Simulated scan of single mutants.
Amino acid sequence: MRAIRFEAPGGPEVLQLVEVDTPAPGPGQVLVRHEAIGINFIDTYQRSGLYPVKLPSGLGSEAAGVVEAVGDGVTRFKVGDAIAYAGGALGAYAEHGVVATDRAVKPPAGIDARIAAAALLKGMTVEAFIRRLHRVEPGEVVLVHAAAGGVGQIMTQWLKALGAVVIATVGSEEKAQVVHDLGADHVILYREQDVAAEVKRITGGAGVPVAYDSVGKDTFEGTLASLSRRGLFVSFGNASGPAPPVDPIRLMRGGSLMFTRPTLFDYIATTAELDASAAALFEVIGSGQVKIDIGQTFPLAEARRAHEALESRSTVGASLLIP
Score class of each variant (00 low, 15 high):
Tyr45Gly: 04
Leu50Gln: 14
Ser48Val: 03
Arg33Glu: 15
Val18Thr: 13
Arg33Lys: 15
Pro12His: 04
Val32Met: 10
Val20Ile: 15
Gln29Lys: 10
Val32His: 08
Val20Tyr: 12
Val32Gly: 10
Gln29Leu: 04
Leu59Thr: 06
Val18Tyr: 09
Phe6Gln: 08
Thr44Arg: 04
Glu13Lys: 12
Leu31His: 05
Ile37Thr: 03
Gly60Ile: 03
Gln29Tyr: 10
Leu31Trp: 07
Gly11Glu: 10
Lys54Phe: 13
Leu31Lys: 06
Tyr51Leu: 14
Ser48Cys: 05
Thr44Leu: 07
Leu15Gln: 02
Gln16Ala: 10
Pro12Ser: 02
Ile37Ser: 01
Glu19Gly: 13
Tyr51Pro: 08
Thr44Ile: 01
Leu55Ile: 06
Glu7Arg: 15
Pro25Thr: 07
Tyr45Pro: 02
Val32Pro: 09
Pro52Lys: 06
Gly11Ala: 12
Asn40Cys: 00
Ala24Asn: 09
Leu50Trp: 08
Ser57Asp: 09
Val18Phe: 11
Pro9Asn: 15
Glu19Lys: 15
Ala36Leu: 10
Ser57Cys: 12
Gly10Thr: 09
Ala24Pro: 03
Ile37Pro: 01
Val14Phe: 04
His34Glu: 12
Pro25His: 11
Val32Glu: 12
Pro23Ser: 11
Gly60Phe: 04
Glu19Pro: 07
Pro23Gly: 09
Leu15Asp: 00
Phe41Asp: 01
Glu35Asp: 14
Glu35Lys: 11
Gly49Leu: 06
Lys54Arg: 15
Val20Leu: 15
Pro25Ala: 07
Leu59Trp: 03
Leu15His: 01
Asn40Thr: 00
Pro9Asp: 13
Gln46Arg: 15
Pro27Val: 05
Arg47Gly: 04
Arg33Pro: 10
Leu55Arg: 07
Val18Leu: 12
Lys54Leu: 14
Val18Met: 10
Gly60Met: 02
Pro12Glu: 02
Pro52Ser: 06
Ser48Asn: 01
Leu17Glu: 12
Gln46Val: 07
Ile37Lys: 01
Pro27Ser: 14
Gln16Glu: 13
Leu15Ile: 03
Glu7His: 15
Gly49Arg: 07
Val20Thr: 15
Pro25Trp: 12
Phe6Asp: 06
Glu35Tyr: 07
Ala24Leu: 14
Gln16Cys: 01
Ile42Tyr: 00
Ile42Asn: 00
Ala63Val: 08
Gln29Phe: 09
Gln16Asp: 04
Gly26Cys: 09
Ile37Asn: 03
Gln46Ile: 12
Lys54Cys: 11
Gln29Trp: 10
Asp21Ser: 14
Phe6Arg: 08
Phe6Ala: 06
Arg47Phe: 03
Val53Ala: 05
Gly49Val: 05
Gln46Ala: 09
Ser48Leu: 03
Ala63Arg: 04
Ile42Pro: 02
Ser61Gly: 14
Gln16Pro: 00
Ile42Gly: 00
Gly58His: 09
Ala24Asp: 13
Gly49Ala: 02
Ala24Val: 13
Leu31Tyr: 06
Gly26Pro: 05
Ala64Met: 10
Val32Phe: 09
Val18Gln: 11
Pro23Asn: 11
Leu15Asn: 03
Gly58Asp: 08
Pro9Gly: 12
Leu15Pro: 00
Gly38Tyr: 01
His34Tyr: 05
Asn40Val: 00
Val18Arg: 14
Pro9Trp: 14
Gly26Trp: 12
Val30Asn: 04
Glu35Asn: 11
Val53Trp: 06
Gly38Pro: 06
Gly49Trp: 06
Val14Leu: 04
Pro23Trp: 09
His34Asn: 15
Leu17Pro: 06
Arg33Cys: 08
Glu19Trp: 07
Gly28Ile: 01
Phe6Glu: 05
Gln16Ser: 11
Ser57Leu: 10
